Amino acid sequence: MVDTTARDMWERFEPVHDLVYFAPEARRAADALGLRGYWMGYFALRAAPLGPVAPCVVTSSFYVFHPGRVARALPDAWKYAAPAEVLAARGEAMDAAMTRLFGSRAARSAELAEAADLAWEAASAADTTGRVLAAANQALERPGRATARLWQAVTTLREHRGDGHVAVLVSLGIGPLEAMVLKAAAGESDGPFLRETRKWEPTDWTAAEDALRERGFLAADGSLTRAGVAGRALVERRTDEAAGRPWRALGAERTARLAGLLEPLARAVGESGLLPPGNPVGVTLRESAGR
Results as ranks from 00 to 15, higher is better:
Leu224Lys: 10
Val229Asp: 13
Ala242Phe: 01
Gly251Ala: 04
Ala233Gln: 13
Glu253Thr: 12
Ala227Ser: 13
Glu253Gly: 08
Trp247Arg: 03
Leu224Glu: 13
Pro246Lys: 11
Leu218Met: 11
Trp247Phe: 14
Pro246Thr: 07
Arg257Ala: 13
Gly231Ile: 07
Leu250Pro: 00
Ala252Phe: 09
Pro246Trp: 11
Ser223His: 11
Leu218Val: 13
Ala252Ile: 13
Ala230Trp: 00
Arg257Met: 12
Gly228Thr: 12
Ser223Val: 06
Ser223Lys: 14
Leu258His: 14
Val229Cys: 07
Gly251Pro: 00
Asp221Ile: 01
Pro246Ile: 13
Ala233Phe: 08
Glu241Gly: 02
Trp247Lys: 01
Val235Ser: 03
Leu250Asp: 03
Leu224Thr: 09
Arg245Ala: 11
Ala243Arg: 02
Arg248Lys: 00
Ala230Lys: 08
Arg232Asn: 14
Arg237Tyr: 09
Ala233Pro: 00
Arg257Tyr: 15
Arg238Pro: 04
Arg254Ala: 07
Thr255Ser: 15
Gly228Met: 13
Ala243His: 04
Thr225Cys: 08
Leu218His: 08
Arg245Asp: 08
Asp240Thr: 07
Arg238Ala: 06
Arg248Gln: 05
Gly222Ser: 06
Leu218Thr: 09
Ala220Pro: 00
Ala256His: 11
Leu234Val: 15
Asp240Asn: 10
Asp221Lys: 02
Leu234Asp: 10
Ser223Gly: 14
Arg232Leu: 14
Ala219His: 04
Gly228Leu: 10
Ser223Glu: 15
Leu218Tyr: 10
Asp240Pro: 06
Leu250Tyr: 07
Leu258Gln: 13
Arg248Gly: 00
Pro246His: 05
Arg254Met: 03
Ala233Tyr: 05
Val229Phe: 07
Thr255Glu: 03
Ala233Ile: 03
Thr225Tyr: 09
Glu241Trp: 03
Asp221Ser: 08
Val235Met: 05
Glu253Gln: 05
Leu224Asp: 13
Ala219Cys: 01
Gly231Lys: 03
Ala220Phe: 00
Ala220His: 06
Ala220Ser: 07
Val235Ala: 13
Ala227Gln: 12
Arg257Ser: 12
Gly231Ala: 15
Ala233Ser: 11
Ala220Glu: 12
Arg238Phe: 08
